[in-house]
Design a protein around this nucleic acid. Structure first.
Lengths: 267, 267
DNA sequence: CCACGTTACTTTACGATGTAAGGAGTTGCA
DNA sequence: TGCAACTCCTTACATCGTAAAGTAACGTGG
């Protein structure tokens, strides 16, 4: 996990908020730059999308651009900053404005599903620390979208902020589970099913008194709580997907209750 | 992030479910063991508690026990396994049974607060992958506790499982934010306040048209949504704490709605 | 009682990683 | 024309997990 906010604050904010492509006719001495921040970001994001955060090394990014790792340091102060820039730039994908027509419930559902899909397309984003937010333009654009939807609830501003954060936590968490399940599958070479089968066989062997020790868990299992229907989707992934859908419904119902409890004049 | 389920499944499950202390009078040749899995786990956990996951290296654990890193490999197959064992053992802290008397709502609240506190005492736990669960006895004990509380809701088993997962995701997420905020503060040497102050100063400098570009966010800010009262607690940490409290309430309200919507004969 | 095989632990080594330091070569302008 | 600024490279260092091979301690079968 890497943190933002190290290094020169001015330089980093300037990089984040710079209008891309505004190269401004150069008149500086020295060999003309073969790279640019944008080109580096493209390469780094492509690499992270393909090989995950673990595959994102300075050497690898450099190699993809026909340079050494050290060449990147001309354009970007260090890896943490590079990550911040990647983080904000990829969030441009979420910039598509959502129609507020359908009411807040439809709006939040659509938004949550968008963000969920986004995280699964770029799982490395989940590994950038959420403390010390990056504060780039595209992150704000995403926040602006939810803020707009939540505005329609009529809840007081503080409540809205808290609910937005809670939604984020939840979406991030469930998406992270899916992403890690996929990583685990490809890293260990074992599918969810193979892994679970071997593991539960060992479990009965090593803890024969399981049902007596954990009656509630065993009860849930015998009631079929852990049986999933769709066999085309890996087990853990399907479970996380269900958690996402069900949890989102619970959260939305809870928000509805909060709205109902707020006196009309405070809305 | 490291994954369980690599390596020998039998060996790993045996280590997890072994009754600790049952040394069984040894009759093997060779020098008598100076260490034991338990001693190694104690040292490793102490180290992780003090210096976080980043400080947990095989060399450091060895040194704490007066050995080299390689000595550990006599007792534990590799670092991933060590982490799994640490993970399960630390969960013993949560084994304290909760009274189910107060009803499910009080029970879930107490449980969530317990788990939240636990994660903050041992933040490294949050860095062990949740996909491919470890399946040790203490992890099951914790699950047993929530399962018992949720049993009281009368909801069908599948719904109970999904809600339990959703609660976990949420508690983990908010706790992780606090933990990362603390890490960031000590890693960068900047307090939340110092960091935020410098950053937002840069923001107005670099994006003077902020209010126009992000009217909803700016609106929330001017309504005081980002102002917190308690100045003794670092900003980000307090914000996460609020998110935890508010989000938990929303979730519980949502669960209440789900219970009300379930036909009595299905409970 | 003693050699043998098993076991605990050490030393050394390898290929990763981010990045500091210093040097080589290219360019614009005084 | 020379100098300063600039891009990019090579080399080097500490740190990581762990493979390989060696050393010393020990219980036991002969």
């Amino acid at each position: 996990m890497v943190f933002a906010g190290q290094g020169d604050q001015r330089r980093s904010m300037t990089l984040l908020w710079r209008t891309p492509g505004s190269a401004a006719t150069r008149t500086a001495p020295g060999p003309r730059p073969g790279l640019s921040v944008d080109v580096i970001l493209d390469a780094a994001i492509a690499l992270a999308d393909e090989h995950g955060m673990a595959g994102l090394s300075m050497r690898a990014v450099g190699e993809r651009l026909g340079r050494t790792a050290m060449a990147l340091y001309t354009y970007v102060p260090n890896k943490a900053e590079l990550l911040d820039l990647m983080y904000d730039r990829i969030h441009a994908e979420l910039a598509t404005a959502h129609p507020t027509e359908g009411g807040w419930r439809a709006g939040l559902t659509a938004w949550a599903e968008d963000v969920w899909g986004f995280y699964l397309r770029h799982p490395w984003v989940l590994q950038v620390s959420q403390a010390r937010p990056v504060l780039g333009p595209h992150e704000y654009a995403m926040l602006e979208t939810v803020a707009g939807i939540m505005h329609g609830t009529g809840l007081p501003a503080t409540a809205r902020r808290r609910i937005i954060s809670a939604l984020f936590q939840f979406v991030r968490g469930t998406a992270q589970t899916v992403s890690e399940a996929r990583q685990a599958a490809s890293a260990t070479g074992l599918s969810d099913e193979e892994w679970w089968y071997a593991r539960s066989a060992m479990l009965t062997e090593v803890a024969p008194d399981f049902a007596a020790r954990f009656p509630m868990v065993a009860g849930m299992e015998s009631e079929g709580a852990f049986q999933l229907d769709d066999e085309t989707v890996p087990y853990l992934e399907q479970e996380a997907r269900e958690t996402f859908r069900a949890g989102l419904t619970v959260l939305l119902d809870g928000i509805e209750a909060a709205i109902r409890a707020t006196p009309t004049d405070r809305r």
